[in-house]
């Protein structure tokens, strides 16, 4: 795999996760407030994009992929916890379903796919094995990826602060600080 193709795939990864996060913000501003576990899953998605962002900015490296793996495993743990809370019929659910699966189940699927994608990238991209010189780049890929993720993380940080304050309620019904 060429170095440029690897960078393109990293950019697509970032934009894909940004799309998922933008969807969750749309749902939030549509009136459905995220629960504490939902917020942790969002956090894991955001943390997962840091690996590809560092790859784009400083060159593709194993350590950057490791960050994505740590974050994806963290996110999988949280989403499995939420699935298990509601998996028994009659125990209710949180939020609505999309294509017969709730958003936390979709989150689990996406985290699983991300682990798979990172494993494939580590397997097929030979340059990630070699520790190259750290090359700092601020090309169009970096600018787009950082602008999109910076905007999304800033909105999420403020929205979470307004909704939760220091501690989130289990079933939020509005913004605590407004």
């Amino acid at each position: 795999m060429s170095y440029d193709l690897a960078r393109k795939i990293n950019l697509i990864f970032v934009l894909g996760i940004a799309g998922v996060l933008a969807g969750s913000l749309t749902i939030q501003f549509g009136g459905e407030y995220p629960c504490p576990l939902c917020i942790l899953q969002r956090l894991a998605f955001v943390l997962m994009t840091m690996g590809p962002l560092l790859n784009l900015r400083f060159g593709v490296r194993q350590r950057h992929y490791a960050i994505s793996l740590f974050a994806a495993l963290f996110g999988m743990s949280v989403s499995v916890r939420q699935v298990l809370l509601h998996v028994v019929p009659g125990t209710g659910s949180y939020g609505f379903a999309v294509l017969n699966m709730h958003l936390y189940t979709w989150a689990f699927v996406i985290f699983f796919m991300a682990v798979l994608a990172v494993a494939v990238m580590l397997a097929v991209h030979k340059e990630a094995e070699i520790v190259p010189e750290v090359v700092q780049t601020r090309d169009a890929y970096v600018k787009v990826a950082f602008a999109v993720m910076g905007l999304i993380v800033a909105i999420m940080a403020v929205a979470t602060l307004l909704e939760c304050g220091w501690q989130c309620p289990d079933n939020p019904t509005g913004y605590k600080l407004l």
Binding site: P36, I39, L40, L43, V46, L47, M50, L53, L54, R57, F58, F146, M149, G150, V153, A154, M156, A157, V158, T160, L161, C164, W166, Q167, C168
Partner: peptide, 18 residues
Amino acid sequence: MSALLFFMVLGSLALAWF
């Protein structure tokens, strides 16, 4: 607490950018 974690990520993004 959760907002703090998002602000940490924001800081991390800024550090990477610089």
